[in-house]
Amino acid sequence: MRRITYRQALREALQEEMERDARVFLMGEDVGIFGGNFKVSQGLIDKFGEERVRDTTLAETVIIGAGVGAAITGMRPVCEIMLADFVGVCFDEIYNKAGKWRYMHGCEVAVPMVIRTPMGCRGGGGAEHSQCPEALFLHGPGLKIALPSTPYDAKGLLKAAIRDDDPVVFFEHKLLYDLEGEVPEEEYIVPLGKAAIRREGQDVTILAYSFMVHKALAAAEALAANGIEAEVVDLRTLVPLDVETVLASARKTRRVVIIHEANKRGGAGAELAAIIQEKLFGVLAAPVIRVCAPDVPIPFSPALEKVYLPDEEKLQQAVRELLAK
């Protein structure tokens, strides 16, 4: 099968959906001729023109607010927020408008929009250019959240998100844009709400998403060398959450470790751990453990950033400690 990058996969998804549906259009800062800060939309303006690949003003509130307005009047906007940290500027528009407009206005209108945004540390970004803010939106009713970890999923999930009738916050990880992987030429979709078991194992379940899936797989390989077989579940989407797959794996291994790059307090891991213990309290052999960044702002210095980030060594250590219990 051919191999393309995560970035190319995203671009193909955008192009194919724009070809398929005239209501789909892109808007955001520098998404046009410049092709987006991470070059995901590069070349699309040549195919679709400035009408459908819109450079906006430097104004996140109107990027998302106008996206909601367009979505409730018959269009299917794909809005880009240059960095996930900037969701704070348009938080009301995502959390309250995109997420709640339908319900509070009588459940009649749909809000079919995608908010694409790059997240994560990639070295030296510091506190306001490196964050993973998915948990903020996990708490908000009405939103869906996708976090692809591979080129295959990047394309398939983005296509599903664009076709979905609900607002989807779509987190792309900056360190994945150059990742190559198998992506078929033919049309496919990765449905929202279906986790992928990336590695089977019976000793412990590792729940991960986005870039941390790769850290989890690296840790699992290292653990296997010591006779520990970890099952790695890539959640792919946090809303909808594939509770069935999560619980089936947890029931099988009776031990669960959750890894995410975002800081621990109030993170997605807290919700996952709560669901698992609510459903499987008597089944579990040990507490559900979280391997996450600490609750500090992300430091600039690479020396500190390395300490900050969860990685395969920290994950391995957590698994070993868990199995010793």
């Binding site: 509130t61 269009m75 408008k97 407009w101 009588g106």
Partner: peptide
């Protein structure tokens, strides 16, 4: 709200409706 007569709803935060209107205008134009 009443979408049958074009009443698109209201924003709980004052002014949140302004950017939504810009989007509705964009949609009509597109």
């Amino acid at each position: 709200s009443d979408f049958s007569v074009g009443c698109l709803g209201i924003s709980g935060s004052q002014g949140g409706n302004i950017v939504i209107a810009t989007g509705a205008g964009l949609s009509a134009k597109m």
